[in-house]
Structures are given as structure tokens and as C-alpha cells.
Design a protein around this nucleic acid. Structure first.
Lengths: 203, 203
DNA sequence: CCTACCGATCGGTAGG
DNA sequence: CCTACCGATCGGTAGG
């Protein structure tokens, strides 16, 4: 992996953990093992590095979307895969979820634009399938399609972003072993999937 | 209002908007109209100010809990008030929701402790009522009570924390007037309440 | 509560 | 003249 990618990977991890303002260029450089100026050679400013990190996440999102839509919209039986696909995408790299959760709080205006440009077409398409499901009585008539999809996305992102913290609270806060913690996390994700499915399907 | 409260109020607003690391003591002092050193007279460190802000939110939460539990658990008809009560509490002061959403990301260990100490007894009590509802067939048998309540809390906090951003994305990103924006926000909160109710009640 | 400061560290740029 | 960096240091500001 070249320097530029290594720097972006380290920044992703640190921004996800401590937030943009909580990370210095020096700490990113140290974690890669280069001088701070090397970092500023590849990215002209800290802000440019932030955009590169975010863009890398969104690029992965855009690459994954077609297959996700295929899984969600091919046949009624597969439609409930909506939440599973989202959970799988974000749980595959929890830093992705944490970066987006932070971006939503830190940069509401930029994120607003990203939501409208990258996410809205996808939301509208899934909403169209929900409306078809409502016509044939498969989906509850009182579901607000666009609002529902957005709630599912937000719930998946924030749940995965805070899953370790939440799972510990759920299991009582004691020092559980890794096996036990992973089981509690899986149980919590299973309830998320059950909730979003039950809130959607009439039968 | 005394200086100490004014400082805490200004810090709450700024921490909620920019995050703890994104706010300098000087910027808090400026927004109150005092010297930075005045602030350090009332709160010995930035970290002490952070704890005071968080403690003030939790104090309000603990004061509100008894009435909320009363509303939620008195009779089956009122049980669905769970989400409404939570939405009302956090929507009444959105900085509360944003502070908790940030705290969850920034200080997972401290927040873990707070969740276990302040929230878990409440979650266990509500879960007990859910289990009674399951026995009489009022509530879906496959609901995971503790996990469900935790999901509702997280969903309400993050939805209210990001409601302005989300509502703009939902209405298309154009420059909607204040009236239109508030309507979209209410519509989105209504779907949240519908989702959590439908995911719970069998009939 | 304020004036006057501190050790250190911030994001960013210089020449080579 | 280019690339991929380095050691040193810029003007300002951080928390205390």
C-alpha cells in the first residue's frame, strides 16, 4: 500500500475514534511512521484529508449500492433483506458507521448535500418498491416510505457505530469475555432486523 | 441566571454544535461575555465543565423519569406512550440529544457506565411490562425486551439530534420555508412512533 | 472575577 | 526539471 493510502487509512481510524477536531496531524503521522510534512505533501491540508477519508467511504458505498439494490428488490421474499444488507455493509467496517455518524453531527450542511445527492435516489427507489408492496397488501398501508427508509439507515449506522458500548450496557456492564460480547452484539442486531421487518410487513 | 449557569448553558450549546474538542474555552467565554479566566474560576478545567454539562442533562433525565414511567406503565392503552414520552423529552431541547449522541461516540467508556447506572434500571422495568404484555398476547412474542427498549432510546436520541439535517434531506434539499421544514420534521417523528409501535404490538 | 503570562502544541510552510 | 520526502521552524492559540 502506498503512503497516500496508508495515511488515509490511519486518518480514517483516528477520526472515527476521536473525531476530526480530536486528532492532530502529528498523531496521524506518528501512527503511520512518517513525518507530519510527508502527510502534508500528500494532502495539502487537514480539511483535504477529511474530505479524502469521507470520499473513500462514499466511493465504497456507491460501488456496493447496485448489488444491494439487486438483493433488496428481486422478489418479495428477498425484500426484507434491506436491513440485513445495510447491517452487513456497516458492520463489515465499523469505522465507516462511526465516520458517518460523526459527520452528520459535525458538518450538517455538507452532510445534507451528500444525503440528497448520494442517498436520496436510492431512498426514492426503495420507496417505490414499498409503495408496490402496499398496493398488494404485503406492507402496512400506514408506512411512510421515504421516512421509513431513512429511519432504517440512521438506526443501522448509529447502532453499529456504538455497538460495543451498547452491548456492554445491555449485558450488565460487567467484564464479559469476547465470546459473550459478540453474542450480545449479534442478539442486539437481530432485534434491530426484527423491528424493521415487523414495522414494514403486514403479514 | 448566575455566571456559573450562564457558562454551563453556553458550553452546552457550543459542545452540542461543535463537539467538545471543537470548542475552545475562549470561545465559550466570548459567547458569555466574560474573560476565559472567569470560566476557569467556576470550573477548574475544561474536563470539569464537560462533566457539569453532562451531569445537568442527566439530572433533568432523572427528574423526568418517574412521570415518564407513570405514563408508560399505567394501563395497556397508555403503554404505547413510551416513544412519545422519549421524543417529547429530547425534542424539548435538542442540544440534550446532540450532547448524548456525541458523548456516546467520544467517551464510550464513561457513557457505558452512565448507561448501566442511570438507564439500565429503567430499561429493566419497562422490559418487565413488555414481558407481561407478551404473556397476554398484546405484544409480539419474538420481541427481545431489553434490546428493543435500547433501540428505541438510541433511535429517538439520534433522530432528534440530526432532525434538521434529516428533514432537509427528506424534503429534497431545496430551501424550504420554516413552516414546511417543521411539517417534514413532524412527519418524520410520526413515522418513528409508528415504527416502534408496530414493531411492538401484536394487535 | 481580571491582567498578565507559562509550557506545549496546533495546522501549515520554508529551503534543500 | 520532477517525485517523494526530511529537519527545522513559521505565526498563533490551546488549556491552565
Amino acid at each position: 500500500m502506498d503512503s497516500s493510502s496508508q495515511i488515509r487509512a490511519a486518518a480514517s481510524r483516528l477520526f472515527a475514534t476521536h473525531g476530526y477536531e480530536g486528532v492532530s496531524l502529528q498523531s496521524i503521522a506518528d501512527s503511520v511512521g512518517v513525518a507530519k510534512q510527508t502527510l502534508l505533501y500528500h494532502y495539502p491540508s487537514k480539511e483535504a484529508l477529511r474530505r479524502a477519508v469521507l470520499e473513500h467511504v462514499l466511493e465504497h458505498w456507491r460501488r456496493t449500492l447496485p448489488a444491494m439494490l439487486q438483493a433488496v428488490t428481486s422478489g418479495h421474499g428477498r425484500f426484507q433483506a434491506l436491513t440485513e444488507e445495510l447491517v452487513s455493509f456497516f458492520d463489515g467496517d465499523r469505522d465507516r458507521a462511526r465516520l458517518l455518524a460523526r459527520e452528520l453531527l459535525d458538518n450538517p450542511n455538507d452532510t445534507k448535500r451528500l444525503l440528497v445527492e448520494s442517498l436520496r435516489p436510492w431512498i426514492l427507489l426503495v420507496s417505490e418498491y414499498i409503495r408496490e408492496g402496499q398496493k398488494i397488501g404485503l406492507i402496512h398501508a400506514d408506512v411512510d416510505p421515504e421516512s421509513y427508509v431513512l429511519h432504517v439507515v440512521i438506526l443501522v449506522i448509529t447502532t453499529v457505530a456504538n455497538l460495543t458500548t451498547i452491548a456492554t450496557a445491555l449485558s450488565g456492564g460487567g467484564q464479559a469475555d469476547a465470546q459473550n460480547r459478540r453474542e450480545t452484539e449479534q442478539r442486539h442486531l437481530a432485534e434491530l432486523i426484527r423491528m424493521t421487518r415487523t414495522a414494514l410487513f403486514a403479514r
